[in-house]
Every structure is written in structure tokens, then in C-alpha cells.
Amino acid sequence: MTRTWFSTELETVATFWRLIRRDGVTLGFTTHDADLWFDGVLHRASPGMVPSSIRKSAGFEADSAEVRGTLTHDAIAAADLASGRFDGAAVRIGLVDWQTRETLLLHAGTLGSINTEDGQFSAELVSRKAELQRDPIPRTSPACRAAFCGPGCNLNAAVFTREMAMTQMDVTANTVQLDETPDAGTHAGGTLRWLDGPMAGTTMGIVSVSSAGSVLLDAPLDIAIPAGARVRLREGCDHTLDSCATRFGNAVNFRGEPFLPGSDLLASYPTPSS
């Protein structure tokens, strides 16, 4: 039997919202005055985090919603928001009966833009209907449009991924030294994912590898990362046809048009010398 919510004068109902980060961490919160366990997730009591009104429509336009709150809960820190740990996280908002644990899902989507100011944060919630506005038709490009080892590229990521350990770190230069020296030619443009320490689950881009073996990263390092922290390195790809054919032997899956004339051909005109 389907429940009719708010059909009586007194209801044991609270609001919940759940975040599923891209690194696999799931966080739950509720407006109830005590922690609630349901759907296999512990939802922490956090009355300061309240979703605004949720607008839903039967059309194709994206539904709108927003969450506001204070940065008082240990699970959501300003440093984590600034470092991008919550970027693109999946969001679920709904109602829960804190006596029976019966739930009703009101909104499903992802986190959009996040703003922080004076200990307060606000996050735009993008509904799944926003995917209907995405243009599914790829545009031509001289470089490969597929993500390295992703769909379309079809290379096995395990072949180009290795686990290492950090031995030294220079926060000022934003570089790390590893117990093995990665190849500068293959790892430039790759990624480094932290497996241990305070930044575990965070992925950073590799800008370059020096001759001394220092790996320059594109995101700030946490000074609290201990020596010996494990990392997972994945090689990079410059997305050119030459690299795809000679380095990877994967030209059959190249997702680009390097020999297609560009717009400059349309603007050209004959000259006496031609």
C-alpha cells in the first residue's frame, strides 16, 4: 500500500539527503535531531543543512533544487569542497519516517556549482533530466576525443597503471618523489591517485616529470600526507594519431579526424603565386 505523506495533523517525518562522491564515499544527513540508519547508510543529524524548495515538472526542462547549510559537520569541510572532492557527486533527497524508516525519494541528480562564504555553503543540485539537454553528437576534432583507457579508446587501464609509494614531498613546488622514477615521456599528462593519507581517493593530474624524478602535480598537496603513502599512477596520452598508432597500436579506435580540412580552408583565397 502506497503511503500518503502529510495526510495527518502529526507526522514523524524528517528530510534526508545523501551524497555519493566519485571516490565511492557515501555521506548521509537528516534534519532529524538524532542519527538515522536506513538503506544501509548512517544519516547524521545535521539540522543546519536544509534543502530549499524542489521544483519538479513533467516537461523536459531540468528540475531545480538547492541545498544550503553551515560547515559545522566533520564530514563536509571547506578544504574538501575547495579540493573538488564533492564535484559531480550524486545526490539523493527525500523524506524519511524516523519511526518506521519508510522513505520517499524527491530528487535525484548531481552536485553542480558549490559556493562557500563565512562558514556557509550553498550547492546547486542538477537533476538527471539535465542529461536530456546534452548534445550526444560528437564534433570533429584533429585530436582524439575519447578519454584515455575509457569508452571508445578501449585500452586496458591496468596495463598503463602502477602502484608506487611517496618518499618525499615539496609542498612549495607542489612536487612529490616516488620510490620508483616514472618515465617522463609516458606519464606527462597522466594522473596520480592517492590511496593513503588525508587525500585518499583524490586524483591529480601529472604536469611533468623532471630528470631528477620529481612529479609536478596540478592540484595543491596536503602537508599532512605521510611519507610512504601509496599512490596509483596512470600514464598519459597526447591524443594524437601518431601516438595512438605507434605507441599504443590502437589507431583503429582513434576518435578524431586529423586529416579533415579546418575552417581556415574556407577563409583562404587564391593568390597570384598560387
Rank of each mutant, 00 (worst) to 15 (best):
S64G: 03
L260H: 11
E117I: 00
A58W: 11
D97L: 01
D264Y: 12
G190Y: 00
T240D: 00
G109A: 00
Q168W: 11
G69T: 01
A77H: 02
I20G: 13
E163G: 14
T100A: 11
W5Y: 12
S113Y: 08
I54D: 09
F121L: 03
V25T: 15
G40H: 11
T240E: 05
D222Q: 08
F38W: 15
R128T: 10
D179M: 09
A267G: 13
L104V: 01
A79H: 04
V91T: 05
L125D: 01
A184W: 05
S268M: 02
D183R: 06
G59P: 02
S211C: 00
L71F: 05
Q99G: 02
L265E: 08
G249K: 06
L10V: 15
H43I: 08
G249Q: 07
N115G: 03
I225C: 13
T100R: 09
I114W: 01
S46I: 02
F160I: 04
T202K: 02
V252N: 07
V67T: 03
I225R: 06
R162D: 06
D87V: 12
G28L: 08
M169C: 10
G40I: 04
S53N: 10
Q99F: 10
L241W: 11
K129G: 00
S7E: 15
H73Q: 10
A45F: 01
Q133K: 11
V91L: 13
C144Q: 09
L111W: 00
R139L: 14
S273M: 08
G69M: 01
N174G: 09
T4F: 13
R68S: 12
R44A: 12
A78R: 13
K129I: 03
